[in-house]
């Protein structure tokens, strides 16, 4: 009985170890992508007509995207946080071989966010084309640097 309990305890510890907390840098970068998705959802919902257009809300969402794009990325991408090294991330190791290219693509997101910021408050129809540019900047990085689910 004692042995069984001990075994259970050991297994439980191992199981906890297997779902170890993600490094803070990974949580932070995933958090910024969630912030992007949340605000893109507001703008996309308006473009699709699923949410009523509000110049104020659209502007706020676009401003948030610009704010996210202005976060310096260096601290969020430490070595050893790729998907071969740890679970819970889809960041491909090739990111660290091409970090300049990855950061250039992050910059492209920033440019697309600025274009949205300039347009979002001017009317519903201005959102759609800028969503396309933002989507293009996401794709530009995700085609090579993010692993499939």
């Amino acid at each position: 009985m004692k042995k069984t309990l001990a075994t259970v305890a050991v297994l439980a510890t191992l199981a906890t170890g297997a779902v170890a907390e993600l490094p803070q840098a990974v949580k932070a970068r995933q958090g910024q992508f969630n912030l992007m998705a949340l605000n893109l959802g507001i703008l996309g919902g308006m473009a699709k007509g699923q949410i009523d257009y509000s110049a104020e809300a659209a502007q706020a969402a676009a401003d948030n995207l610009v704010a996210v794009s202005s976060i310096h990325q260096a601290a969020l991408w430490p070595e050893g946080t790729d998907n071969m090294s740890i679970d819970g991330t889809r960041a491909q190791p090739v990111i660290w071989e091409n970090i300049d290219d990855v950061m250039a693509k992050w910059g492209a997101f920033g440019e697309a966010a600025l274009a949205m910021q300039a347009a979002a408050g001017t009317g519903k129809d201005a959102i759609g084309p800028n969503m396309g540019k933002l989507g293009g900047s996401c794709k530009g990085c995700h085609d090579t640097y993010r692993a499939p689910q």
């Binding site: 959802g41 699709k48 889809r90 989507g135 996401c138 794709k139 530009g140 995700h142 692993a147």
Partner: peptide, 27 residues
């Protein structure tokens, strides 16, 4: 249709991998 146009899923995650190329075409 919106995914094929913009690359955004209904949760506003974005397309990735080889499918990003497909969405590029469909856009």
């Amino acid at each position: 249709a919106y995914y094929l146009e913009s690359g955004f899923t209904p949760d506003y995650d974005s397309v990735g991998g080889h499918m990003a190329e497909v969405v590029e075409n469909f856009s």
